[in-house]
Design a protein around this nucleic acid. Structure first.
Lengths: 322, 322
DNA sequence: TGAGAATAATGAGTTTGATTCAATTTGCGT
DNA sequence: ACGCAAATTGAATCAAACTCATTATTCTCA
């Protein structure tokens, strides 16, 4: 008779995910559950409350007043719980540690900076450092324990490394607004035959445009040139010096301002996953785990166009079995 | 890997109960769980956090910093959840209703007033009223639906009534500090042979001092006289006009101030349960359920000496089976 | 408007975590 | 050292929450 409703934290998390994603399927993916689970869960909760939590029909998913009430509750509670858990982890498992990281793509600074900022508040003792640039291979360095974390979308499987997926994103081709390709709905590999493709200065085999798009069709762009920074690439694109493939979330903020448009690669689009690579021994380390958690939160709250990823973790043993 | 700790609301509730009661046994009783359950629960949580939550030895149960951190979390979250659930209940199941109540013992005003105050904030539409006094029988009136809630420690089983236990309390004998009985550790039935016993003006068979103490031993006090109010009784006791049996929680606030002392009745003491009687059909009514919830909260936070009760609910069918 | 794809609901079966029960250990007062 | 109450422990049980497989609904685009 007590606790009529029996609200649980998972309910709040579900509602929250539901709001962020706008659909059961996506929310389920974000929570690493099945869509069925959520359906049951919500239904059960609704029956206990005695009214619906959201209107099912209608695409961007509208919440009822009851749903909204629970969402405000979630907004109050979840962050507090997050903080408390962080405090506990710090209290328990050594406050300090080393977190030397490297990113493979400069765009990542966009979310890495805020991530680090909020992380540092909670782990002031963790010694942080980064390296970036295309002139050295970070993953081997990670395996050798010269680094502790590498952000990459191009996993290099190795027994001592584990890849934690952060989010899925789409590779888009950025073209000038006046460029003929801007007219097309989506880009075919042959469309790039006469284009100059601007890329980061790394081997083509590690770039999704090549690996998953051009190479598959046996096509090549007319020319390639490299640039180290996203902004510079976009300047070149805007000046009609070429086209380039970039993550949708990195592009998002430039789309209105600049004279740039973007188009999917292929009819389905090319979707990639961004991973955080860490050494397997670090998998349970509170200060590492919390960094990853913070990173995901930051990304999902600041980046447009990204999606929660299906898989939960990629390690050597796991994926070599597949 | 996500959500390292997996904190749940039941953890917070447990910690909270542990603080209030000071022991696993009592906390378990308060939560209507076994003590074993709590032991497992706490142990599991501690193992996930990686440190102890409280020091086991040491009687008034000391919390570690981790434990304290979680308690502050509990203090933040639990009330918010409570509020949200109230809001939902109101949203869902009609905001209004009738709540006419009666108390059998004037002392209950002590906790009933604050209960009503905080209740009214959340259920402004509920129409409240009370009756009190010894000149009419409230339980039959409740069965006849003239009342909706009766506070009593003396259940009168009837098929349409249900008794929700609020808390357990001890009946104590109040005596003047200069009274000879003040010297005794505890009071025996024979001790009252030459005393004047002051009681509320109801049948003796409904008073625990008689039913569970004197009658059992076949004893009688030298005389009895009645008074309607606790305060008046205590004045009489202080003036050596007699002794009286009152609930420990009702006595608590007068002990220091006045020249009154109190002693257990019998070696084990006499423990009673205070119930809220409602009509069975009202068992699920949100506005009733919430009133009971509010009452319990108020009692446990304001009354000294009371204990959570073992049983969860007493109804006609249930107890006639026993 | 009707076929196909995506999303949601449903039912049965399974898993997992929380709880109980029974037995044992620990701590404390005499 | 003994005895009692409280706490721990392990095995067994139970129920909530989840998955899988299927069906129903809704959306969208020809």
């Amino acid at each position: 008779m007590s606790n009529q409703i029996g609200l649980g934290l998972h309910h709040l998390k579900t509602l929250n995910a539901l709001r962020q994603t706008g659909s059961l399927v996506e929310a389920a993916r974000m929570l690493h559950l099945t869509q069925s689970a959520l359906s049951h869960q919500v239904k059960e909760l609704e029956s206990r409350i005695g009214m619906e939590l959201f209107v099912r029909k209608s695409k961007p998913l509208r919440f009822t007043s009851a749903g909204l009430r629970l969402l405000t509750l979630a907004d109050d509670l979840l962050p507090q719980i997050r903080l408390a858990e962080q405090d506990l982890l710090r209290l328990a498992g050594g406050e300090s540690g080393r977190l030397h990281m490297a990113i493979e793509c400069h765009s990542c600074f966009q979310w890495l900076m805020p991530t680090i900022d909020s992380y540092r508040e909670h782990w002031p003792e963790v010694e942080m450092d980064f390296a970036s640039g295309f002139n050295f291979a970070p993953l081997p360095a990670l395996a050798r324990a010269e680094l502790d974390l590498v952000i990459t979308s191009d996993p290099l499987l190795s027994p001592e490394l584990v890849y934690i997926p952060l989010f899925d994103y789409e590779m888009l081709l950025a073209v000038s607004r006046r460029h003929p390709l801007a007219q097309k709905e989506w880009i075919a590999p042959t469309d790039l035959r006469q284009e100059t493709l601007i890329t980061y200065p790394v081997e083509h085999s590690r770039l999704a445009v090549f690996k998953d798009f051009m190479d598959k069709a046996g096509e090549e762009p007319a020319a390639t040139r490299t640039a180290e920074m996203t902004l510079m690439m976009l300047q070149l694109v805007a000046s009609q010096r070429g086209v380039c493939a970039l993550p949708n979330w990195a592009l998002a903020e430039y789309l209105d301002k600049s004279h740039i448009q973007c188009r999917p690669l292929g009819e389905q689009g090319i979707w990639c996953t961004l991973y955080a690579a860490i050494r397997a021994e670090h998998q349970e380390q509170p200060y590492i785990v919390d960094f990853l958690e913070t990173a995901k939160e930051t990304c999902f709250s600041r980046l447009d166009g990204i999606r929660p990823c299906k898989t939960n973790e990629v390690s050597y043993s796991l994926s070599t079995v597949l």
